[in-house]
Amino acid sequence: MPGDAEDRLRRLEELVVEALRRLERLEALLGAMSEEAAIASRLTIVFSMPAVRAIEAARRIVEAYRYASDPISRAVLEALADCSPRSVSEITRLVRELRGTASRRIVRERLQRLVERGVVVPVEQGSRILYRLAYCEDSR
């Protein structure tokens, strides 16, 4: 009988170690997804975007975030998340919805930087210049 109790205790210890390993992997995965989830949540709430589209958009945005170090540039990327080409005025309005405030001049400056970095592309539409995420070219 003493050996039986020791075997069960050893097996229980193995199960606990395996459970802890799985929890660590799950924590790492959730940590990586938390930024996407936060962005998707914001897009859903602020722009009334369906959750599935918001999740897809958040994945594009997270990839583009490495080229945007400031909050305004990140808000510009979020404003372009649905892959629709937008004017500076439209982007500024959406950035205001996200941040509460935005200057058209600052938004234009950030857009120019993002264009220079290849994250945003200008799209000529007649005499107007609109902007779209470069990552969206693959999805069109």
Rank of each mutant, 00 (worst) to 15 (best):
E36T: 05
P50I: 03
L77A: 02
L20T: 10
V119L: 03
L98N: 05
A102T: 07
E109S: 15
A102I: 08
S48D: 13
L15T: 05
A134S: 12
E18N: 08
E109H: 13
R66E: 14
R140V: 10
S89E: 15
M1R: 09
I45D: 08
V62L: 04
P71S: 05
V88D: 03
I72A: 05
S127M: 13
A5L: 15
R74N: 03
E36Q: 11
L111R: 08
V52H: 07
E63A: 04
R8V: 07
E14M: 09
M49D: 03
R93T: 11
E78R: 09
Y67W: 10
V119R: 00
G100V: 10
A64Q: 02
R10W: 06
V76W: 01
I45S: 10
D82L: 00
A40S: 11
A19Y: 09
P122A: 11
R25A: 14
G3L: 14
Q112L: 13
D7L: 11
M1A: 11
L15V: 07
A5V: 12
A54M: 05
S73A: 13
R128M: 15
V16Q: 09
D70W: 00
S84D: 11
P50N: 09
S139L: 12
I106V: 15
G3Y: 11
R53P: 00
R108Y: 14
P2E: 14
T44I: 01
R21D: 15
A54H: 03
R104L: 12
V119P: 01
I45F: 09
L80M: 04
V88L: 10
V120R: 06
I72W: 00
L80T: 01
A54L: 05
S48G: 12
V52T: 12
R86W: 00
R60G: 02
P2G: 06
L130H: 05
R10T: 08
L111D: 08
R108G: 07
R99S: 12
R105V: 14
V115P: 06
R117L: 15
D7R: 15
R93W: 07
R74I: 03
R25M: 10
R8Y: 06
A81G: 02
R53S: 07
R25N: 09
A81R: 00
E24D: 15
V120K: 05
A38P: 00
I106G: 02
P122K: 09
R96Q: 12
R113C: 05
R42G: 01
L20Y: 06
P50K: 04
A79G: 04
R104G: 09
A134I: 01
S73Y: 02
R104K: 14
L114P: 08
L23Y: 09
I45L: 13
V46Q: 02
V46K: 02
P50W: 03
E13N: 07
A58F: 00
R113G: 14
L29D: 10
E6M: 10
V115W: 05
R104F: 08
R8C: 02
F47Q: 06
I45K: 11
L77T: 00
A51P: 04
L30Y: 10
V46M: 04
R11P: 00
R11T: 10
A5G: 02
A19G: 02
R59K: 12
R108I: 04
E124T: 11
S34F: 03
E116A: 13
G31S: 12
R108W: 12
